[in-house]
Design a binder for these strands. Structure first.
Lengths: 252, 252
DNA sequence: CGCCCGATTGAGTCCGGTCAAGGCTTGTGG
DNA sequence: CCACAAGCCTTGACCGGACTCAATCGGGCG
């Protein structure tokens, strides 16, 4: 598919899109090099592998719709989810350090992807330093993304609260309202991603619900009391198991 | 200080140095731009802050000797160490995403630093794509550095084993032998860095010592049985508290 | 010498992991 | 249309690894 199939100029994600800053894309991709480098609106179906460990690194990807998990194979054989990519997120940067991907990327939910050939992007950087800025900024963001470092030291309930808030922030105007969240993966994947057992995920969601903070329907979560979630996340000490019932009484 | 004070061409770290690839540096820094952009052999003393949270991002730094910790201020006010930089390591990349540093950098041990102005590096990238490659590779390495993601899910003894092995790997030919390790920070800092209480750090080092795996003298650690350390790190299950004494009998 | 910071060690507690049983949903085939 | 199977989710019981609190010890420095 070429750019003209669904022009980037009308894409609802164009403002945050790295690719959109590449000269020529906004104008409809008249440039020859670009047509061969940029591919938009690639269909992915749930469970599909976009790339695997050790595969050669060629493209940067962007999620347009659906979601993707990036995971690392550990020495003991099991999977370890290190990144969760939602619409607007970039992935594929794990191939930068030795021309091979060190993660694998699998579609959690069916949707659309765009990709750009890294080589081309690289040569375009020489022409326009602006792209480099965007790229580095992007990598910087991934680099400091607190959801990895900070939350790894938090108690389980804080991590879940963190995830829910992050997911709700990700809801743009064209998607769900900020109080509605769709969990893009199973409890097992959430647990893997957040570093806890799947039973703990389930338990904490249950406790949140019992306290009237959220309402859970499978993968669908309604946030009834965002302030309480924020309080749980930022509170220096204490958690729901010990004193939570008193701190966050049921809203019913 | 200028390049000529201690020329990069004789630096023992030049092979892994990003700055060394900048054209002109290897030749002694004849270029005018470089002289104003690159500064080598900057003295830092223990406890000195190299930059703080929110300070404007100007330089990339490289540790030539000594060590540096990069930490993040959390919303609850305490410090969270996210990176430990030893000779050959780069830091300062946390300023990439919004022109301000999101970490602070403090010297753990006195030593020498080199720094390069990012703006200059940026403009040099346009001339030589090779530098971009090096830079991206470097960021990629930081990006996938397992010591952050993977170890956060490990038991405390595995993390300590991991740290000891990593530190010993960092010993170059010009420093200590691979079986001697200097812990660059206090137990509290190690605990902060690895995500555990300082008492746990002390306890596990004690257990390792009791089992004849290491010998601890303050910040000085002698690795007596590297194979045992590797076994602890990679073993799928089990840890020293439950069955370790049987698995790793004293070597005395 | 005494102070202070860091390290060690012990006791008690609890968060969260593991094991296990059961309920709910979804899809497939008889 | 229902039966069955296979995932996925929930809930409970139990246990252990690591945190907290607390006391003690050791070493460097004024």
């Amino acid at each position: 598919m070429s750019v003209s199939a669904s022009p980037c100029s009308t894409c609802y994600l164009r403002k945050q899109c790295l690719f959109y800053r590449v000269p020529g894309v906004a104008q409809g991709g008249a440039d020859q090099i670009l047509e061969s480098a940029l591919t938009t609106n690639i269909q992915m179906v749930q469970g599909e592998q976009i790339y695997g460990y050790g595969s050669t690194f060629e493209y940067f990807y962007m999620v347009k719709s659906g979601s993707v998990k990036c995971s690392l194979g550990t020495s003991t054989g099991e999977e370890l989810i290190v990144d969760l990519c939602l619409p607007g997120d970039i992935f594929g940067l794990d191939g930068l350090n030795d021309a091979r991907h060190s993660y694998s990327a699998v579609a959690l939910e069916s949707g659309l992807l765009c990709k750009i050939r890294f080589e081309t992007l690289e040569s375009l950087i020489a022409e326009d330093p602006c792209i480099l800025r965007s790229l580095l900024r992007l990598m910087g963001q991934k680099f400091i993304s607190d959801l990895r470092f900070v939350t790894s030291r938090m108690s389980a309930d804080k991590r879940i609260a963190h995830l829910l808030i992050n997911l709700s922030k990700h809801n743009g105007p064209s998607t769900l309202p900020a109080t509605r969240v769709r969990l893009p993966m199973t409890r097992a994947d959430i647990g893997n991603y957040l570093g806890m057992a799947l039973e703990t995920v389930s338990r904490i969601l249950g406790i949140f619900q019992k306290n009237g903070i959220i309402e859970v329907h499978g993968k669908h979560v309604e946030i009834l009391d965002p302030a309480a979630l924020n309080r749980i996340m930022t509170d220096r000490e204490g958690n729901l198991f010990s004193s939570g019932a008193a701190k966050f009484p049921p809203a019913e």
